[in-house]
């Protein structure tokens, strides 16, 4: 059974009189330990598709299954559990809480889940992304690449099975972007996490095992 399965999913926004089709007839699957790149121009539907895959949004048609569960049929509490335990997010603009240190940012999902040994686990994750020396720094005291590494550590803090990265290198220079992509690769290789990367960079395509191209909301 695939970890993530998208079956004829479509997403339409707006009113009946003026609908906007963001996605149409999308079908693919991702197995554990697979690195899939979603590529396409801005506005082609990459972020929308990532939101469906992360159970943050639901398709207007078709289905999205995560570990065999149809996301659209889950209750609010079940969805919260799903996002907490199985899915990690990495954003283009890092999205760290500027009121917390690097370590506290990584620790946050663990505390929200009321996990024991949250601090120890957070320190391990921070060590894994080679940011243990910056544990007490606040986000505004870190560079873009450093912030993104902390964000990846946070996304991995609860051992997710699926990591969704929405243009994580979009705000970074080439050298730093390569570091981040290598980190994502390591995630796949060392933890067996499935990574779904939305990107329009060449380096992102090279790092992935497989590429799905989107144009105007459809697979090409």
């Amino acid at each position: 059974m695939a970890l993530l399965e998208v079956r004829n999913a479509g997403k339409v926004y707006g009113s009946q009189s003026a609908p906007v089709t963001a996605l149409a007839n999308i079908s693919f699957s991702v197995d554990a330990g697979e690195f899939l790149a979603l590529v396409g121009r801005s506005g082609c539907g990459k972020s929308t598709l990532l939101n469906l895959c992360g159970a943050m949004d639901f398709p207007s048609s078709g289905e999205v299954l995560i570990d065999g569960q149809v996301t659209g049929r889950l209750s609010n509490s079940a969805l919260t559990c799903l996002r907490r335990e199985k899915i990690g997010f990495v954003f283009q603009s890092f999205q760290l809480l500027h009121t917390l240190t690097a370590l506290a940012n990584v620790e946050l999902p663990l505390l929200l889940a009321r996990m024991a040994n949250a601090r120890r686990i957070a320190e391990e994750r921070l060590h894994w992304v080679e940011m243990e020396g910056y544990a007490d720094r606040f986000p505004h005291q870190l560079s873009g690449g450093q912030q993104q590494r902390v964000a990846i550590a946070r996304a991995l803090s609860q051992n997710p099975r699926l990591l969704l990265a929405d243009e994580p290198t979009g705000n970074l220079d080439t050298a730093t972007a390569e570091i981040i992509l290598r980190l994502l690769r390591r995630t796949v290789d060392e933890f067996g996490v499935a990574v779904l990367l939305a990107t329009h960079s060449r380096e992102g395509l090279i790092a992935a095992d497989r590429v799905i191209a989107l144009r105007d909301g459809r697979m090409i």
């Binding site: 609010n76 509490s77 907490r84 997010f89 946070r154």
Partner: peptide, 16 residues
């Protein structure tokens, strides 16, 4: 709101 939304993304329930 960004932070609170992010906390929801990170797995916080509404009651939290």
């Amino acid at each position: 709101r960004r932070e609170l939304a992010l906390i929801r993304f990170l797995g916080a329930a509404q009651i939290q």
